[in-house]
Amino acid sequence: MNAHRRLVLKGMFALAAIAAWPRLLLAARPDSVFQETDADKVIADLFGQAPTDSDQVMMKIPDIAENGAVVPVTIKTDLENVESISIVVVNNPTPLAASFIMSPRSVPTVSVRIKMGESSQVVALVKAGGAVYSTTKEVKVTIGGCGG
């Protein structure tokens, strides 16, 4: 059994067992998902379920990056029982940028800075109460323009 299939199974197992052991999922770094090159597969492998678009997931990220090498992202949510917060950059060579595992004492808000090779959709994913919620935003990485 390869690592990828193990992860899916683990995800499904965790899904079934979520009420009892909410922190089992992502208990270790999902190394193979960090190598995965397709964003849809990243999300499938990470959660074993499709996310629901939700305005309860709030993402602050620039519309146009000042520097593609340093793009600040803040994700927060009003959802309860948050288990993890993840960031997927669809057009990056390996789309999964980061996963943050919340503790029972966590306030579900994190900030980090990411690299973007080109303009891309950026997806913020929050796993809470066993379900996965997301919000998506286009971030433009552009050459310098001209000023008014």
Partner: peptide, 11 residues
């Protein structure tokens, strides 16, 4: 202020 100053002008 102009939101894209460090992109349109030198950062």
């Amino acid at each position: 202020a102009f939101p894209y100053t460090p992109i349109a002008n030198p950062s």
